[in-house]
Design a protein around this nucleic acid. Structure first.
Length: 742
DNA sequence: CTAGGGTTAG
């Protein structure tokens, strides 16, 4: 009896010490060491297993934790709670709930864990239901969890109501309320609450410091930091990160050197500070120097190399890493993705057993950017837990490759949409020429309670510009003024372009004068506006003014002035500017510039020169260039060159009917009917069909679109009637252009 | 060994 007690005691102390060791190792991220200790233990009890579950969970190894949980000889309530906590800390609410429902008995820990699960997930109603059911309602820990849940989700009133009703408030209760304000950028309310607080601890102070950092008020942040009675490592690290975020790397380093105690977190924060500010060499040397490294340290330096484009160095570090985690692997993947090395990215991706959302999203974005939409879609479909970013990526990607039908389909399947979703759709529609649909979506978005941002406005205005919808454009302008985005450069420039394309050049000029800090895009917008309205001399005047004011023109500026020259027939001026662009401004001509030049020379009948220019190009020609040449050939009746240009053009645009029509008309004019037939045949082979003509008109602030032969418009019959009488009228007065009579 | 407030990598 005595000896057996003694042996229990001996084992007891042995087990106790080792259990503690596992916990410590797990908390400090040394999971491999923890596993070793666990495996070599001669005696284990339930607590040993529980400790190991927590150690796994804290290091993201959720499936290992679950495996241990399922296989352990005996489970107590702490085992269940630990497993639920494991799911909580790894954002797996569904699995947590399943365990919670299945567990034989529940205690205060279980209920609190589950409430926190829900509030982290934003499911406040579910959390509140549990809270109302639980038997320990006025326990401060449970109450605090609920208060914190409300506060973090910006439900300040609900939080405050519960907070005020609490019979026993402790410091955590106060800090839970405070967190709600500081984490949501409500520093005015936060400060007010802070001053109201009966007692404060270092957490309260740290919250204030971090809150001010979040809203970009470094001065207040520093003011509070200096007042902290006993700053701890967290205080120092928070302030350090604040400096780092605003590029104050020297101040960050000074804090790091002054810190009384430097733990892994402090080292990691300093390394991250260097990485954020592109000082990768310093980051690496600090990494080498640091006494103990965890997976975050490794991930940070790998990410540093990735950002500098040093992929091989990053890969080497990843290979050396003692225990790879998803974050490090995802950093590596995003490096490969940015450099379009999708196969390398895929290799890493395949190595990851439990992938997080970020990792999947990175791969999907990568495939999309390489135009590999099938693979992107395949991954997207495989994803079990998609977030809003996954959906948005798919919408934007389909839009980018011009598959608007697919983009719209994905968009419509979305349960939850944010501003990015709408902007992806609207900018996609704009870029793919569906201006009217873009504007319709803009309106729809408003009806669904989503406010436009600068990007939405820019797209909407651009659509108005293309449609020449002045009234709608003006309305958007009004909305811009109310929204507070009027000072945004993108929006201002879009406004200039909109007025210019709608022919309201004086409004464009007025806007240009009103911009405080315009950039080269503003100049470009107005120059393009003049060019478009046939006011080439004004465009050139503005270009010179721009030079006088010391704004360096860019490639877009030259597209504007070259097209201005071409439209008003300033041949020599255009040639001079083209030369000046290359020689004085060191701008390599793009296809667009060549297209302008071909147009310019071609209109003047200097076809041979235009052709020589194209043949001498270093870059590949595009549809714009061949189109310009073909157009010039048509004007000046050069059938041979036209044939050549058309052949090239059709390689780019095999489905565009107008190209075939242009060529066949030229052949017809020359009486070469065999060639006409050949072109018609070719057109059929390539599957080019006559695209329905469509036009639009603004009536009483509404844009109406018409498709030829389209009876869909509600007032089609009426309109046809009016059209017929108009045509008759024009025929009588001789106003009718020839083409319209055909 | 498990629950409520604060820091670090993506």
């Amino acid at each position: 009896m005595k000896s057996s007690l003694k042996s229990v005691g001996e084992h007891g102390s042995y087990v106790f010490r080792h259990n503690l060791k596992i916990t410590q190792l797990g908390k400090s991220g040394q999971i491999d060491e923890a596993i070793k200790v666990f495996q070599h233990m001669t005696h284990k009890n339930t607590v040993t297993h529980n400790s190991m579950i927590s150690a796994f969970a804290k290091n993201g190894r959720i499936s290992d934790a679950r495996q241990l949980f399922d296989g352990m000889p005996q489970r107590n309530i702490v085992s269940w709670n630990s497993m639920i906590a494991a799911y909580l800390h790894n954002d797996r609410v569904e699995e947590a709930r399943q365990l919670f429902d299945k567990m034989p008995t529940r205690d205060l820990y279980s209920w609190t864990l589950m409430i926190t699960c829900y509030t982290r997930n934003g499911e406040l109603a579910k959390a509140r239901n549990l809270f109302n059911l639980l038997p320990y309602k006025w326990n401060p820990v449970c109450c605090n969890a609920m208060v914190a849940g409300y506060a973090k989700n910006r439900q300040f009133d609900e939080a405050r109501r519960l907070f005020d009703a609490m019979p026993a408030k402790d410091l955590v209760s106060w800090n839970s309320m405070l967190t709600g304000y500081t984490r949501n950028g409500e520093m005015r309310l936060g400060l007010q609450f802070f001053e109201e607080m009966a007692e404060r601890d270092v957490v309260s102070w740290n919250l204030m410091v971090d809150g001010f950092v979040e809203v970009g008020d470094l001065n207040s942040s520093w003011e509070f930091f200096e007042k902290i009675p006993n700053p701890n490592t967290v205080s120092w690290v928070t302030m350090l990160c604040g400096f780092a975020r605003f590029g104050k790397i020297a101040e960050a380093r000074r804090l790091f050197d002054q810190m009384p105690i430097r733990n892994v977190v402090a080292w990691n924060a300093m390394i991250a500070a260097y990485v954020q500010n592109c000082h990768v060499d310093e980051a690496i040397s600090l990494f080498m120097e640091m006494p103990e490294k965890n997976s975050i340290s490794w991930t940070t330096v790998i990410n540093g190399y990735v950002r500098m484009g040093k992929l091989d160095e990053a890969r080497q570090l990843l290979n050396q890493m003692p225990y790879r985690n998803v974050a490090a692997q995802t950093a590596m993947i995003s490096g490969y993705v940015q450099n379009k090395r999708m196969d390398d990215a895929r290799q890493i991706f395949n190595q990851i057993s439990i992938r997080d959302v970020v990792c999947w999203n990175t791969m999907i974005a990568g495939y999309s950017q390489c135009g590999r939409m099938d693979e992107a879609l395949h991954l997207f479909k495989q994803m079990v837990k998609k977030d809003i970013v996954s959906w948005n990526t798919m919408v934007a990607s389909y839009a980018q490759v011009g598959q608007m039908d697919a983009a719209i389909k994905i968009f419509e399947e979305m349960k939850e949409k944010n501003i990015v979703s709408w902007n992806s759709l609207i900018s996609g529609l704009t870029q793919n020429g569906s201006y009217l649909d873009a504007l319709k979506s803009f309106m729809l978005m408003g009806h669904e309670g989503q406010k436009p941002d600068q990007s939405t406005f820019a797209c909407g205005l651009s659509s108005c510009a293309h449609l020449a919808a002045l009234q709608v454009g003006k309305q958007l302008h009004q909305l811009v003024m109310k929204s507070g985005y009027a000072t945004d450069l993108f929006v201002s420039n879009a406004l200039i372009t909109m007025y210019a394309k709608c022919g309201s050049i004086s409004s464009a000029e007025l806007l240009f004068k009103d911009i405080d800090h315009f950039d080269v895009v503003s100049w470009n917008s107005l120059i393009a506006a003049y060019a478009l309205n046939g006011n080439g001399r004004e465009a050139l005047k503005l270009f010179h003014k721009m030079e006088v004011e010391g704004v360096a023109p860019d490639e877009v500026t030259f597209v504007g002035i070259l097209s201005a020259c071409s439209h008003v027939g300033l041949i020599d001026q255009g040639l001079k500017l083209f030369k000046c662009m290359v020689q004085a401004y060191n701008i390599e001509p793009l296809a667009e510039h060549y297209a302008c030049m071909v147009d310019l020379l071609g209109r003047a009948g200097r076809l041979e020169e235009a052709f020589q220019l194209v043949r001498g190009m270093k870059i590949n020609a595009n549809a714009g260039i061949w189109g310009a040449l073909l157009g010039a050939c048509r004007i000046h009746g050069n059938l041979e060159l036209a044939k050549f240009a058309a052949e090239k053009l059709l390689e780019f645009e095999p489905h565009k009917t107008s190209n075939y029509v242009l060529l066949s008309n030229m052949q017809a004019e020359a009486g070469r009917w065999d060639e006409v037939a050949r072109v018609r045949r070719l057109m059929k082979e390539k599957g080019a069909e006559k695209q329905p003509g469509w036009s639009w008109i603004e009536l009483q602030n509404r844009v109406h679109a018409f498709l030829s032969e389209d009876p869909a418009h509600p007032r089609a019959v009426e309109l046809c009637h009016i059209l017929r009488s108009l045509t008759a009228h024009m025929r009588n007065t001789g106003d009718m252009p020839l083409e319209c009579l055909l």
